[in-house]
């Protein structure tokens, strides 16, 4: 599964937000998309999962233009963990995960099995009957990830999956996604985390992709000053790592 963006421009209500973005995610790659607030990262991601239609350019998943695929076909290729939290109805965790099967023909037994495995994968087997709205932020993210897993796609899109989480849960989610080995494009906030987890990084600023490549080559002090307007300094500092015996 390969995601290939060529010259993608996206406008919101007539205002251009993203300009001619080129971006590539190869099979099994974990690719990060970073940049200051309002630079267009989420907008670009939304155009990949068809919430927005690009004004120009091509978004291809496995060689096919996603905006020309039937909605169901596209949803069988790409799953999303977005920031939108479905909270107003009292869906249970199991019901939320089951939604991942929406793009497929119903097959009760197989669906049960897939959803059970997805919940197991995110470590929430016992929580199936709990009401989603009553979960903590970290648990909610894991449930939404389980839904994306139940969708059985080979491309995963994440929009700031760790934004409301404490440091331990941030690391858990990112490790979990890494271990999946699915092609992943993640909008990330924390540059240190992005550098630690991503195979490659794209840096966006003011709607344009400024640089792309392995984190070590991309996150240069020069680029960071140019994009974020801050000075990047290498220092020995406290680094947070997940405990191995967790889970």
């Amino acid at each position: 599964m390969k995601l290939d963006l060529r010259g993608v421009s996206v406008a919101l209500d007539g205002h251009p937000i993203v300009h001619e973005a080129d971006l590539l995610v190869d099979d099994g790659e974990f690719v990060g998309l970073v940049g200051p607030n309002g630079c267009g990262k989420s907008t670009l991601l939304r155009s990949v999962y068809r919430a927005l239609r690009p004004a120009a350019g091509l978004i291809a998943v496995d060689g096919d233009d996603v905006h020309r695929l039937p909605a169901r076909q596209a949803a069988r290729r790409t799953a999303v963990v977005a920031q939108e939290i479905p909270a107003d109805l009292d869906f249970t965790v199991a019901e939320i995960v089951f939604m991942g099967r929406t793009p497929y023909k119903a097959d009760a037994a197989a669906d049960e099995e897939l959803c059970a495995r997805a919940l197991e994968r995110v470590g929430l087997t016992g929580a199936a009957e709990r009401i989603f709205a009553t979960l903590s932020g970290g648990e909610k993210q894991r449930v939404l990830l389980a839904r994306a897993l139940a969708q059985q796609t080979r491309l995963l899109l994440l929009d700031e999956p760790t934004s409301h989480l404490d440091v331990r849960h941030q690391l858990e989610i990112l490790h979990l996604v890494r271990e999946l080995g699915i092609a992943t494009l993640a909008v990330l906030h924390d540059l240190n985390q992005a550098a630690a987890f991503c195979d490659r990084l794209y840096v966006m600023n003011a709607g344009r992709i400024m640089a792309g490549g392995p984190p070590g080559q991309v996150l240069t002090p020069d680029l960071i000053r140019q994009v974020y307007g801050v000075r990047a300094v290498h220092r020995t500092q406290l680094v947070f790592e997940r405990l191995k015996e967790e889970r």
Partner: peptide, 20 residues
């Protein structure tokens, strides 16, 4: 009922789950 559930969970969720 499945598209209805997806729609109740939110527009973008429904889109990403293949609902037109």
């Amino acid at each position: 009922h499945r598209p209805l559930n997806a729609l109740a969970a939110g527009e973008e969720t429904a889109v990403s789950l293949g609902v037109n």
